[in-house]
């Protein structure tokens, strides 16, 4: 887990996500290497055991290719700045276009993606974002409880590092452009984490 490994691991991951729409031959190899490199990279959240399983979800075509890496990694914007409902409700929420425009009336207005966004804004419409992490209807999941346990009630955890907790279930989103499902989000996945972190073990806590 040297600094080199860390650096290369991250770089490989980001290359993969940038190139993935092209699906070149080198890609699977890159992905395998990235996986190996990613394993020790899993965020170390104090007082929590992180899940280790990975999953390769489909690439979802979004109306605008939203670069999570630029926002969360380069500019270090907290996940909860845009996904503001995560800390107080069941769903994390997708920010309204007005939130995007709060910055992008000034920042990077000449970029093609921002131009597209501005078009939406001027028409008074919102981009029809597609859901990437979807749970079945019979599952009750609340972001609020999980954030409370792993961030706000967790004394040794800094809110600035919230993305490490998000990465438990969403993977290294800050290395992706468009978010992609990278954890299985199955019952077994939830259960193993609940066992390790002493979460509730009652069917009706999660099934509705």
């Amino acid at each position: 887990m040297s600094a080199m490994q860390l650096f290369f691991g991250r770089r490989l991951l980001s290359c993969q996500s940038l190139r993935s729409p092209g699906r070149s031959l080198l890609l699977p190899l890159g992905f395998v290497v990235a996986l190996f490199a990613a394993a020790p990279l899993l965020a170390e959240v104090p007082n929590a055991v992180a899940p280790t399983e990975t999953y390769s979800g489909d690439q979802v075509e979004q109306p605008i290719e939203f670069p999570h890496d630029i926002h969360a990694k380069v500019n270090k914007i907290n996940c909860m700045y845009c996904h503001t409902y995560a800390r107080r409700s069941k769903v994390a929420g997708i920010p309204p276009t007005s939130k995007c425009m709060g910055c992008h009336t000034v920042i990077a207005t000449d970029k093609p993606r921002i131009k597209k966004l501005t078009e939406y804004w001027e028409k008074g419409e919102s981009p029809k974002w597609k859901k990437v992490h979807d749970l079945p209807d019979y599952v009750h999941f609340t972001h609020e409880k999980h954030l409370q346990r792993f961030i706000f009630d967790n004394k040794d955890m800094k809110v600035e590092n919230a993305s490490e907790v998000c990465a438990f279930c969403h993977g290294e989103i800050k290395d992706m452009t468009v978010a992609q499902k990278s954890r299985p989000l199955t019952m077994g996945f939830c259960r193993r984490c609940h066992e390790q972190n002493k979460g509730p073990f009652d069917c009706w806590k999660c099934h509705k």
């Binding site: 079945p136 009652d202 069917c203 009706w204 099934h207």
Partner: peptide, 15 residues
């Protein structure tokens, strides 16, 4: 169907 710590008879539909 099982008994919950809340004393309810739960029915887990997906099971």
């Amino acid at each position: 169907t099982y008994h919950t710590p809340d004393g309810l008879n739960a029915q887990v539909y997906n099971r």
